[in-house]
Protein backbone atom coordinates (compact mmCIF):
# COMPACT_ATOMS: atom_id res chain seq x y z
CA UNK A 1 0.00 0.00 0.00
CA UNK A 2 1.41 3.33 -1.11
CA UNK A 3 1.79 6.37 1.11
CA UNK A 4 1.64 9.81 -0.49
CA UNK A 5 1.81 13.03 1.44
CA UNK A 6 1.65 16.48 -0.07
CA UNK A 7 1.98 19.91 1.52
CA UNK A 8 1.59 18.54 5.05
CA UNK A 9 1.90 20.99 7.91
CA UNK A 10 1.70 19.91 11.51
CA UNK A 11 2.28 21.52 14.86
CA UNK A 12 3.21 20.12 18.23
CA UNK A 13 2.32 22.12 21.35
CA UNK A 14 1.81 25.22 19.21
CA UNK A 15 5.18 24.98 17.43
CA UNK A 16 5.12 24.23 13.72
CA UNK A 17 7.21 21.06 13.32
CA UNK A 18 6.34 20.07 9.76
CA UNK A 19 6.36 22.84 7.17
CA UNK A 20 4.83 21.85 3.87
CA UNK A 21 6.01 18.32 3.66
CA UNK A 22 6.00 16.03 0.60
CA UNK A 23 6.64 12.34 1.06
CA UNK A 24 6.13 9.11 -0.86
CA UNK A 25 6.79 5.51 0.15
CA UNK A 26 6.21 2.42 -1.97
CA UNK A 27 5.23 -1.17 -1.23
CA UNK A 28 8.11 -3.63 -1.20
CA UNK A 29 10.56 -0.91 -0.22
CA UNK A 30 12.33 0.04 2.95
CA UNK A 31 12.25 3.84 3.19
CA UNK A 32 14.41 5.64 5.73
CA UNK A 33 13.60 9.00 7.25
CA UNK A 34 16.81 10.62 8.44
CA UNK A 35 17.68 14.02 9.83
CA UNK A 36 19.16 15.70 12.92
CA UNK A 37 17.41 15.54 16.30
CA UNK A 38 14.33 17.73 16.29
CA UNK A 39 14.10 17.74 12.48
CA UNK A 40 10.57 16.33 12.60
CA UNK A 41 11.15 12.62 11.87
CA UNK A 42 8.92 11.34 14.66
CA UNK A 43 6.28 13.96 13.92
CA UNK A 44 6.30 12.88 10.29
CA UNK A 45 5.73 9.24 11.24
CA UNK A 46 3.06 10.12 13.81
CA UNK A 47 1.24 12.29 11.28
CA UNK A 48 1.22 9.52 8.68
CA UNK A 49 0.07 7.06 11.35
CA UNK A 50 -2.90 9.34 12.05
CA UNK A 51 -1.78 10.08 15.61
CA UNK A 52 -1.36 13.79 14.93
CA UNK A 53 -3.88 15.72 12.86
CA UNK A 54 -2.13 17.86 10.23
CA UNK A 55 -3.09 21.54 9.90
CA UNK A 56 -2.93 21.40 6.12
CA UNK A 57 -2.05 19.10 3.25
CA UNK A 58 -3.22 15.75 2.00
CA UNK A 59 -2.15 12.27 3.00
CA UNK A 60 -3.20 9.30 0.90
CA UNK A 61 -2.94 5.74 2.17
CA UNK A 62 -3.41 3.29 -0.70
CA UNK A 63 -6.10 4.69 -2.99
CA UNK A 64 -7.99 6.52 -0.27
CA UNK A 65 -7.59 9.93 1.25
CA UNK A 66 -6.77 9.91 4.94
CA UNK A 67 -10.15 11.30 5.99
CA UNK A 68 -11.84 8.34 4.32
CA UNK A 69 -10.08 5.84 6.57
CA UNK A 70 -12.08 4.97 9.66
CA UNK A 71 -9.71 4.47 12.59
CA UNK A 72 -10.65 0.78 12.94
CA UNK A 73 -9.97 0.07 9.24
CA UNK A 74 -6.68 1.92 9.31
CA UNK A 75 -5.55 -0.16 12.31
CA UNK A 76 -5.93 -3.30 10.19
CA UNK A 77 -3.55 -2.09 7.46
CA UNK A 78 -1.17 0.28 9.24
CA UNK A 79 1.16 -0.76 12.05
CA UNK A 80 3.02 1.80 14.13
CA UNK A 81 6.00 0.98 16.34
CA UNK A 82 6.77 3.81 18.78
CA UNK A 83 10.33 4.69 19.66
CA UNK A 84 10.01 3.99 23.39
CA UNK A 85 9.73 0.25 23.94
CA UNK A 86 7.16 0.67 26.67
CA UNK A 87 5.33 -2.31 28.10
CA UNK A 88 3.62 -1.17 31.28
CA UNK A 89 2.78 -4.55 32.81
CA UNK A 90 4.93 -7.70 32.98
CA UNK A 91 2.85 -9.47 30.33
CA UNK A 92 4.23 -12.61 28.72
CA UNK A 93 5.83 -12.13 25.30
CA UNK A 94 3.08 -14.09 23.61
CA UNK A 95 0.35 -11.90 25.09
CA UNK A 96 2.20 -8.78 23.98
CA UNK A 97 2.47 -10.13 20.43
CA UNK A 98 -1.24 -11.01 20.63
CA UNK A 99 -2.07 -7.31 21.22
CA UNK A 100 -1.36 -6.84 17.51
CA UNK A 101 -4.51 -8.86 16.83
CA UNK A 102 -6.81 -6.37 18.62
CA UNK A 103 -7.86 -4.54 15.41
CA UNK A 104 -8.85 -7.85 13.81
CA UNK A 105 -10.93 -9.05 16.72
CA UNK A 106 -14.48 -8.22 17.72
CA UNK A 107 -14.65 -7.12 21.34
CA UNK A 108 -16.25 -10.25 22.72
CA UNK A 109 -14.40 -12.87 20.72
CA UNK A 110 -11.37 -14.71 22.02
CA UNK A 111 -8.37 -15.76 19.97
CA UNK A 112 -9.54 -17.13 16.60
CA UNK A 113 -7.60 -19.64 14.50
CA UNK A 114 -6.34 -16.80 12.28
CA UNK A 115 -5.21 -14.92 15.38
CA UNK A 116 -3.24 -17.92 16.64
CA UNK A 117 -1.68 -18.47 13.21
CA UNK A 118 -0.71 -14.79 12.87
CA UNK A 119 0.81 -14.70 16.38
CA UNK A 120 2.77 -17.91 15.81
CA UNK A 121 4.02 -16.72 12.42
CA UNK A 122 5.07 -13.31 13.77
CA UNK A 123 6.90 -14.86 16.72
CA UNK A 124 8.80 -17.40 14.66
CA UNK A 125 9.65 -14.79 12.04
CA UNK A 126 11.17 -12.57 14.75
CA UNK A 127 12.78 -15.59 16.42
CA UNK A 128 11.06 -15.00 19.74
CA UNK A 129 8.98 -18.19 19.85
CA UNK A 130 11.20 -19.50 22.65
CA UNK A 131 10.43 -16.46 24.80
CA UNK A 132 6.66 -16.75 24.68
CA UNK A 133 6.09 -17.35 28.40
CA UNK A 134 8.71 -14.88 29.61
CA UNK A 135 7.47 -11.57 31.03
CA UNK A 136 8.50 -8.88 28.56
CA UNK A 137 9.85 -6.75 31.39
CA UNK A 138 12.51 -9.40 32.06
CA UNK A 139 13.82 -9.50 28.47
CA UNK A 140 16.99 -7.83 27.21
CA UNK A 141 16.70 -4.72 25.02
CA UNK A 142 17.23 -6.68 21.82
CA UNK A 143 14.74 -9.39 22.76
CA UNK A 144 12.16 -6.81 23.72
CA UNK A 145 12.67 -4.94 20.42
CA UNK A 146 12.06 -8.20 18.53
CA UNK A 147 8.95 -9.03 20.58
CA UNK A 148 7.51 -5.57 19.92
CA UNK A 149 8.28 -5.86 16.21
CA UNK A 150 6.53 -9.24 16.27
CA UNK A 151 3.55 -7.45 17.85
CA UNK A 152 3.28 -5.16 14.80
CA UNK A 153 3.76 -8.10 12.43
CA UNK A 154 0.91 -9.99 14.12
CA UNK A 155 -1.21 -7.01 13.11
CA UNK A 156 -0.44 -8.10 9.49
CA UNK A 157 -0.04 -4.51 8.34
CA UNK A 158 0.51 -3.48 4.74
CA UNK A 159 2.27 -0.38 5.98
CA UNK A 160 4.78 -0.48 8.83
CA UNK A 161 5.99 2.74 10.43
CA UNK A 162 8.82 2.24 12.92
CA UNK A 163 10.33 5.11 14.90
CA UNK A 164 14.04 4.45 15.46
CA UNK A 165 13.63 0.70 15.93
CA UNK A 166 17.41 0.21 16.13
CA UNK A 167 18.07 2.78 18.87
CA UNK A 168 19.91 1.37 21.87
CA UNK A 169 20.67 -1.99 20.28
CA UNK A 170 24.15 -3.48 19.88
CA UNK A 171 25.62 -3.81 16.34
CA UNK A 172 24.62 -7.47 15.94
CA UNK A 173 21.04 -6.72 17.00
CA UNK A 174 20.92 -3.67 14.71
CA UNK A 175 22.03 -5.73 11.72
CA UNK A 176 19.55 -8.49 12.54
CA UNK A 177 16.74 -5.96 12.99
CA UNK A 178 17.37 -4.33 9.63
CA UNK A 179 17.58 -7.74 7.96
CA UNK A 180 14.14 -8.47 9.45
CA UNK A 181 12.81 -5.14 8.16
CA UNK A 182 14.24 -5.82 4.69
CA UNK A 183 12.49 -9.18 4.66
CA UNK A 184 9.19 -7.61 5.76
CA UNK A 185 9.48 -5.12 2.91
CA UNK A 186 10.33 -7.92 0.47
CA UNK A 187 7.03 -9.54 1.43
CA UNK A 188 5.25 -6.51 -0.07
CA UNK A 189 4.88 -4.29 2.97
CA UNK A 190 5.57 -0.55 2.77
CA UNK A 191 8.17 -0.07 5.51
CA UNK A 192 9.16 3.39 6.73
CA UNK A 193 11.77 3.75 9.48
CA UNK A 194 13.22 6.75 11.22
CA UNK A 195 16.95 6.09 11.52
CA UNK A 196 19.90 7.82 13.14
CA UNK A 197 22.63 5.50 11.92
CA UNK A 198 23.42 6.75 8.42
CA UNK A 199 25.42 3.64 7.47
CA UNK A 200 22.49 1.37 8.36
CA UNK A 201 20.21 3.58 6.27
CA UNK A 202 22.68 3.55 3.35
CA UNK A 203 23.11 -0.20 3.50
CA UNK A 204 19.57 -1.44 3.95
CA UNK A 205 17.14 1.19 2.70
CA UNK A 206 15.92 1.46 -0.87
CA UNK A 207 15.19 5.12 -0.58
CA UNK A 208 16.03 7.82 1.91
CA UNK A 209 14.21 10.99 2.87
CA UNK A 210 16.40 13.63 4.49
CA UNK A 211 14.49 15.96 6.79
CA UNK A 212 15.72 19.24 8.17
CA UNK A 213 13.75 21.82 10.16
CA UNK A 214 10.42 20.27 9.22
CA UNK A 215 11.01 20.18 5.48
CA UNK A 216 12.36 17.60 3.05
CA UNK A 217 15.86 18.53 1.87
CA UNK A 218 16.44 15.53 -0.37
CA UNK A 219 14.77 12.26 -1.29
CA UNK A 220 16.01 9.39 -3.44
CA UNK A 221 18.51 6.56 -3.41
CA UNK A 222 21.15 6.44 -0.63
CA UNK A 223 23.89 7.59 -3.04
CA UNK A 224 21.78 10.57 -4.13
CA UNK A 225 20.81 11.69 -0.67
CA UNK A 226 23.86 10.96 1.48
CA UNK A 227 26.15 13.40 -0.30
CA UNK A 228 28.72 15.47 1.63
CA UNK A 229 26.85 18.64 0.63
CA UNK A 230 23.51 17.42 2.00
CA UNK A 231 25.06 16.16 5.24
CA UNK A 232 26.94 19.40 5.73
CA UNK A 233 23.80 21.46 5.17
CA UNK A 234 21.63 19.44 7.56
CA UNK A 235 23.76 17.79 10.24
CA UNK A 236 26.53 20.35 10.03
CA UNK A 237 29.15 17.65 9.63
CA UNK A 238 31.87 16.83 7.20
CA UNK A 239 31.17 13.25 6.12
CA UNK A 240 32.46 10.71 3.61
CA UNK A 241 30.42 8.21 1.67
CA UNK A 242 32.45 5.08 0.90
CA UNK A 243 31.68 1.63 -0.42
CA UNK A 244 33.76 -1.02 1.32
CA UNK A 245 33.43 -4.59 -0.02
CA UNK A 246 30.13 -3.63 -1.60
CA UNK A 247 28.76 -2.20 1.65
CA UNK A 248 28.09 1.55 1.70
CA UNK A 249 29.44 3.34 4.75
CA UNK A 250 28.85 6.92 5.86
CA UNK A 251 31.68 8.19 7.98
CA UNK A 252 31.19 11.44 9.88
CA UNK A 253 34.63 13.04 10.06
CA UNK A 254 34.18 16.31 11.90
CA UNK A 255 31.68 18.90 13.04
CA UNK A 256 31.71 21.90 10.75
CA UNK A 257 32.28 25.27 12.38
Amino acid sequence: MRIEAEGVRARLAGREVLKSFAFTAHPGQLTAVIGPNGAGKSTLLRTIAGLLAPDAGTIRIGDRDFAQWPRADLARVLGYLPQDRIVHWPLSARIVVGLGRLPHRSSAAGESREDTAAIDAAMSSMQVAGLEDRPVTSLSGGERARVLLARVLAQQPRILLADEPAAGLDPAQQLALFQHLTRIAADGCTVVVAVHDLSLAARFCHSIVLVHKGAVVAAGSPAEVLTPAHLAATYGIEARYHVIDGVPVVLPVSVLP
Partner: peptide, 21 residues
Protein backbone atom coordinates in the same frame (compact mmCIF):
# COMPACT_ATOMS: atom_id res chain seq x y z
CA UNK B 1 -16.40 -2.17 28.17
CA UNK B 2 -12.87 -0.76 28.30
CA UNK B 3 -10.97 -4.07 28.54
CA UNK B 4 -9.53 -4.01 25.01
CA UNK B 5 -8.50 -0.40 25.36
CA UNK B 6 -6.68 -1.14 28.62
CA UNK B 7 -4.87 -4.10 27.04
CA UNK B 8 -3.75 -1.88 24.15
CA UNK B 9 -2.70 0.91 26.55
CA UNK B 10 -0.07 -1.47 27.94
CA UNK B 11 1.99 -0.40 24.92
CA UNK B 12 1.51 3.34 25.57
CA UNK B 13 -1.01 5.85 24.28
CA UNK B 14 0.34 6.18 20.71
CA UNK B 15 0.52 2.43 20.15
CA UNK B 16 -2.97 2.01 21.62
CA UNK B 17 -4.40 4.60 19.22
CA UNK B 18 -2.61 2.98 16.29
CA UNK B 19 -4.39 -0.25 17.27
CA UNK B 20 -7.70 1.53 16.76
CA UNK B 21 -8.45 2.49 20.36
Amino acid sequence: SVGRALDALTLGEDAARSLGV
